[in-house]
Amino acid sequence: MSDRVLGLVAVFAGLAYAFAATRIPTSFLSDPVGSKTFPMMLGGIAALCGALIALKPDRPGPSWPGFRTWLALGLAVAVLTGYAYSLKPLGFLIPTAVAASILSYQIRPRATHALATGIGLSLGLYAVFRFLLGLSLAAVPKGWIA
């Protein structure tokens, strides 16, 4: 079942990609192949592979995690996204400690252990990046230090 879905997604994505490729703007500087042909070929081949996958799926299919794990994975993605956005305004130390604690808790649900891991990683990695590798990394939000 999973492979059939994967195959169909690949067919549609491949065709959509090939279609998008037909609308690539061309310029006066052109060669016999042009800037559309290769992407169109790729889309076509991807769609063909998708069709073959859908027609002949692997058995047994993958074992997908349960609902709770999906929830946990969604949370992990949300944490990482938040981390990506907060690194610039909030500096390295606080977002890293928070994100690392949550991820650690998700892998091994022991609160104190996870918190210690988060804080330890935050301080330890900052020391490595800042003093060993010499990265210019803001530690805390702007304005905290005069």
Binding site: K88, A100, S104
Partner: peptide
């Protein structure tokens, strides 16, 4: 539980240090 968060943070800082863009 320590290794994977550590690897993630190193990856983020590494990529962030390349371009500085979210």
């Amino acid at each position: 539980g320590v290794l994977l968060p550590g690897v993630t943070m190193v990856s983020f800082v590494g990529i962030y240090s390349l371009s500085g863009s979210s």
